[in-house]
Write a protein that binds this DNA or RNA. Structure first.
Lengths: 331, 331
DNA sequence: TTGTATGCGTTATCAG
DNA sequence: CTGATAACGCATACAA
């Protein structure tokens, strides 16, 4: 049993109130007694019990972070960014993997509330009405990362996915490519990555290129999807270039092209999305749209802490800048 | 302000004691009143306050997990394994990134104690005396992952790093390679990956191959280290094969070989370690020693929870099996 | 400047 | 079977 404030009080020969005062550096307390208390604290190796403190102050100094899956390639960096900022302000992170399962998300939201976290950083794809309703009921400070709520009434930090995809596709077009494929999320999906198809399409149209479904493959964001997607497109026609909605897709697509005896970038340009760690290690190094993962986490956390402290946030919906990184998978 | 047990009691017309009883399903309580209470709970949308409960029961149902860096390539899977098991037993995870800084590790240990976590999953490289001392003082259930304490008195889950490296090196030898390089941690380092050099050396010696320092490059575990290490070795001599203490090193080494115009595996065999996600996506796909990351996390968590519940654990120091995965970076 | 007392929301002990 | 009530460890309003 660790020492409590009571033990310290007894040891120092003062009341627990006084101990509490020096602990929190509040009110004025005589230098003499302060010293006595400090000595007692030191002697007993006393450390405050934050659970008890939390119950009293109604603040736990911990923040919940809900992500689809920490073992995927893109979330660890976001989490790291969040933790680094949290750390500065003496917050800890409670990590929750939802697997994008709305039921799990809701359960975590409830548990986080029960554990009285001061706020939640929430990453999901779609925000179903039932979840929105729960969020509303829970009354817990929250910021969305990578998503926005329909009405934009929940603070968020994202990138402009449509514009980013537009930039990527236009880059491919500027290189002189005409037949440009797409591998990624279906445009009807209600999440951020679906906007990438919209951006891709817009770039083609604005440049008087026709959008043909035979050049598009809709599936997941994994390398397997890229591999299969590339093969599927190749069965129908040849392509000059491919826009991939994720770097993993790009890697899979490049592997498929290689297996078909086609050279990247000599014969086909491939551009990815995300700029995950291995994009720069892969051969060829992948030209891609860099999403500021770390910054999304840190900016999101910073905003959340402001909200928790009831400070004004200038901008409710941050849109961070993306960047096209030229490497070796495009001519 | 959310409803408390008091509100429920008033709503149901019973005492808070009774509400608590139905909440925890303890003692016998009249079906009739139980129903009333349940209705009140439902009506008010009552959820227990776990912070208050924790203060009373002295159990928080949360577990601290200290890792070097979540944004590195190997920890996310361990964390995921840990979380999945934690989830089953209604525990949550408090994530702490230490960057292998002993000071940070100790600070986290203290804060986790203050927040009354029920246990800690601890990943570090070296356990300095000062940390051991703190651990001892804190009296908090703990299991080590990827490391062991000198005396083996702290429960742990690891793989046999020396044997794994031995297997990898012997695999290279069996392929007929004579001049086998090593890129990785220095043998004097006091952590798990240093044992890989020991295993590598042992394999060479047992097979009557001489160990020559010009074939060894000691550095970090990143791809950059692999790239530079390969170049450095190549300056002194040619090699038939290279044992890399991590997959990232292997990727860097392969890129260096490629830049030097040498083909993998036709001219040089390269074997990695860890089996990180991108090892199977890289070109060529990397032959490697697979560490059961997910299992280390889940087994560790399982063990920790047993310890927390004061159940007997049959084995204090688990050694999980590694596996050599043959892919395309070796002939 | 310091101490007493109350309550944060629970669980658990003790009577009834 | 149920209701008071005392902790759990701390912060704080109010007295002194």
């Amino acid at each position: 049993m660790p020492a409590s404030i009571k033990d310290v009080a007894k040891e120092a020969g003062v009341s627990i109130a006084t101990v509490s005062r020096v602990l929190n550096d509040v009110d004025v307390v005589n230098e003499e007694t302060k010293k006595k208390v400090l000595e007692a604290i030191d002697k007993l190796g006393y450390r405050p019990n934050i659970v008890a403190r939390s119950l009293k102050t109604q603040r736990t100094k911990t923040i919940g972070i809900i992500i689809p899956d920490i073992s995927s390639q893109i979330y660890p960096e976001i989490v790291r960014g969040a933790e680094d900022v949290a750390n500065i302000y003496d917050y800890n992170l409670m990590l929750c993997n939802s697997d994008l399962d709305p039921e799990k998300e809701m359960e975590y939201l409830r548990v986080l509330r029960e554990k009285m976290v001061d706020g939640v950083l929430y990453m999901s794809t779609s925000l179903e009405p039932s979840i929105l309703e729960l969020i509303n009921k829970l009354q817990i400070p929250m910021v969305l990362i990578e998503t926005t709520s329909k009405e934009g009434n929940i603070p968020s930090v994202t990138i402009d996915n449509e514009k980013a995809a537009f930039d990527a596709a236009e880059y491919l077009i500027k290189k002189g490519n005409k037949k440009i494929g797409y591998i990624g999320t279906h445009e009807d999906a209600v999440n951020a990555s679906a906007l990438r198809y919209t951006g891709y399409k817009k770039a083609l149209l604005e440049n008087n290129l026709k959008v043909d479904d035979k050049f598009a493959y809709f599936g997941g964001l994994k390398s397997q999807d890229g591999y299969e997607g590339m093969l599927s497109i190749l069965e129908k026609d040849t392509v000059d270039a491919v826009f991939c909605a994720s770097d993993e897709i790009a890697m899979g697509a490049i592997n498929a092209l290689r297996d078909k005896g086609m050279k990247v970038p000599e014969e086909v340009d491939v551009i990815g999305f995300n700029n995950i760690y291995s994009a720069a290690i892969f051969y060829p190094k992948i030209t891609t749209i860099a999403e500021p993962m770390y910054d999304m986490g840190s900016v999101g956390m910073r905003m959340l802490i402001k909200i928790i402290n009831k400070q004004e946030v200038e901008l409710k919906n941050y849109v961070l800048k993306h960047e096209l990184i030229e490497r070796n998978s495009c001519k």
